[in-house]
């Protein structure tokens, strides 16, 4: 049951991405193109997702623990540093070039379109290189 719930949660997320239009780079890029073919649809995606999550989290956090786990695992980091802002900026540049974010590209793999597969391989390469750099150069610099 626990394992099936992960698959179903992934499906619901992916369906949301597919239905909302987040899965379509042409639409995402037009959302960013406020001086051109501006398509404000993604404001409704973010709005719908955020309001649902805010209300849902309030209810869920009233519980002592999640259904299948003994505790809530919430990120605890709170530092706003160069890595956070620089990383977010680089992500935004890539998103503005290609129109896919990670959460949209993964469901898009299910379309088997070659552009999606190329994007996903390039994104995974970026993750591998950045992690190697973080674990190598940066952790040595700290030590």
């Amino acid at each position: 049951m626990k394992n099936i719930s992960y698959i179903i949660i992934g499906m619901i997320f992916g369906l949301g991405i597919s239905i909302s239009g987040m899965i379509n780079p042409a639409k995402v890029l037009n959302f960013f193109d406020i001086a051109g073919f501006w398509d404000p649809s993604l404001m409704f995606v973010m709005g719908g997702a955020l309001i649902t999550t805010m209300i849902g989290y309030r209810i869920v956090f009233g519980r002592h623990h999640p259904i299948f786990a003994t505790k809530f695992s919430i990120p605890t980091r709170n530092e706003i540093d160069t890595q956070l802002i620089g990383g977010a900026a680089v992500f935004g540049i890539g998103w503005g070039i290609a129109g896919f974010c990670p959460g949209a590209s993964i469901p898009a793999i299910g379309s088997f379109k070659s552009e999606v597969l190329i994007f996903t391989v390039a994104m995974t390469a970026g993750i591998l290189v950045a992690r190697a750099f973080k674990n190598g150069v940066l952790s040595k610099a700290k030590a």
């Binding site: 719930s5 179903i8 995606v45 719908g48 649902t52 849902g56 209810i59 869920v60 259904i67 786990a69």
Partner: peptide, 20 residues
């Protein structure tokens, strides 16, 4: 788009409710 966004939100809430 709003409906799709709500589904994304439901997935996020279910992940917290079931697995924290």
């Amino acid at each position: 788009s709003l409906f799709g966004g709500v589904l994304i939100g439901i997935a996020a809430v279910l992940m917290m409710l079931m697995h924290g």
